[in-house]
Computed example of a mutant assay.
Amino acid sequence: MQGDSISIEEIAKALGVSKTTVSRALSGKGRISEATRSRVRAYVASTGAAPTVRARWSEKTATHNLTMIIPPHFVHLDLPFLRKCMGGISMMAAQRGYDLLLCYASASDTSQLERQLSNRKTDGVILSRAMEDDPCLDLLQQYRVPYVVIGRCEDTSIPQVDNDQVGASYEMTRLLLRLGARRIALIVGTNTYTVNIDRMRGYLRALPEFGVPEDRRLIQDGVESIAQRSDALEAVLDQHPDCLLCGDDRLAFDVMQALHARHIRVPQDLQVASLYDSELLLNTVPNVSAVQFDAERLGASACRMLLDILAGKQINTRQVEGYQVILRDSTH
């Protein structure tokens, strides 16, 4: 077999592992055990063949379609950020003569994306969320399809467009401290998404500047489901905070409803702020202080970067958009 080639699919079938595992073993990227990595490489070496990947995407006929990957729960929740991002991507794509396809994918299911890629239905992909060890990235690299990530990736060679989440969280926390808060509780989502890691980093960076020690009892992370939100709120209220800092608009909206049901007055008894603003927070009484990002512009910037890649232009692989902190009646 010396001099022949062997596909990733053939390696995966022979070893009884997934194509993602083979891709990670050969690329040296992603989290797999050293034993598995060595096993894959040893098998390839024993065949005397060179592993092959898909032909370069630029070699195929253009479809003039772009794909946006969104999380499955987008179907069940009103997520203004993703909706506005989608609008920005769609408008920019249309200006350049492209249509936008949607694709649901998660850490446990990338079948829809693989179907689009294997059937060559798209010219490039935009991932709407940056995840730790995202299996979608392995697929995209395997098929050699151009892509851009919305969010921060540790690998700076990956094309990415992000909001300054660390700076925004830091500035909001500093403003709350300047307004007199000293026991600020933070409630954020899962660390699977780098945006939540960055929000916590900004919060923790601000505390020492006002002589406030870190208190892990005031931090609730990994909060995603309705039940987890209720448990997280219960846990931080037991610590007698003077302010609740919520990771996003949906969480802040639910917290405001829960506080109202408990007859806890905002801001008289407890201040509330959010690290993402949307129209949801204009439907609360009082309106919630929040960080404003231009999600539509973010989506358009991500799409523009992808189109520049498709056109063969040189790009800056990391682009960061700004923000504005809006103080409303929930904090003063």
Rank of each mutant, 00 (worst) to 15 (best):
113 L>K: 00
164 D>Q: 05
102 L>F: 11
110 T>Y: 09
102 L>N: 07
162 D>R: 10
115 R>H: 15
122 T>L: 04
152 R>C: 13
104 Y>F: 11
116 Q>T: 03
106 S>N: 01
165 Q>V: 05
113 L>G: 00
143 Y>P: 03
152 R>D: 10
168 A>I: 08
128 S>D: 06
135 P>R: 09
104 Y>R: 07
152 R>T: 09
119 N>W: 15
129 R>V: 01
97 G>P: 07
165 Q>H: 09
143 Y>G: 05
145 V>F: 14
115 R>Q: 15
158 I>K: 14
125 V>A: 00
164 D>R: 01
131 M>R: 12
129 R>F: 02
148 V>I: 04
163 N>C: 07
159 P>L: 02
105 A>G: 10
148 V>S: 04
139 L>Q: 10
103 C>F: 09
171 E>K: 00
98 Y>P: 15
130 A>L: 13
172 M>F: 01
163 N>Y: 06
168 A>Y: 07
157 S>N: 00
169 S>G: 09
109 D>F: 04
99 D>N: 08
166 V>H: 08
117 L>M: 15
126 I>L: 09
144 R>F: 14
99 D>S: 12
133 D>Q: 10
99 D>H: 10
162 D>M: 06
108 S>W: 07
147 Y>G: 00
105 A>L: 15
139 L>N: 11
149 V>G: 10
156 T>G: 06
163 N>K: 05
127 L>H: 08
159 P>I: 08
128 S>V: 01
128 S>T: 04
169 S>V: 03
171 E>D: 00
114 E>A: 12
128 S>H: 02
137 L>C: 12
151 G>L: 01
127 L>V: 06
139 L>M: 14
169 S>H: 13
119 N>Q: 15
101 L>C: 06
144 R>W: 05
118 S>E: 14
141 Q>G: 05
123 D>N: 13
109 D>P: 05
124 G>M: 12
129 R>W: 01
160 Q>N: 05
117 L>T: 11
166 V>P: 03
129 R>D: 07
136 C>I: 01
169 S>K: 13
131 M>I: 10
110 T>I: 13
139 L>E: 07
119 N>S: 15
121 K>N: 01
172 M>S: 11
152 R>V: 03
124 G>L: 06
99 D>V: 08
112 Q>K: 04
149 V>L: 08
108 S>Q: 13
171 E>A: 01
118 S>Y: 10
115 R>F: 07
97 G>A: 11
152 R>M: 11
115 R>S: 09
123 D>A: 06
154 E>N: 03
127 L>S: 02
157 S>T: 03
117 L>Q: 13
159 P>G: 06
158 I>E: 04
113 L>M: 05
165 Q>I: 03
116 Q>N: 15
109 D>H: 08
165 Q>W: 03
97 G>L: 12
102 L>I: 12
114 E>S: 11
146 P>F: 10
99 D>F: 01
137 L>N: 14
100 L>M: 14
118 S>I: 15
97 G>R: 14
103 C>V: 05
121 K>A: 06
116 Q>H: 09
135 P>E: 08
112 Q>I: 02
113 L>E: 00
109 D>M: 09
117 L>R: 14
130 A>M: 07
116 Q>L: 15
153 C>M: 14
147 Y>T: 01
98 Y>D: 07
143 Y>W: 15
156 T>F: 02
122 T>Q: 04
98 Y>W: 04
104 Y>C: 09
163 N>D: 10
163 N>G: 11
115 R>W: 14
172 M>C: 09
134 D>N: 12
129 R>C: 03
122 T>H: 12
155 D>A: 03
148 V>W: 01
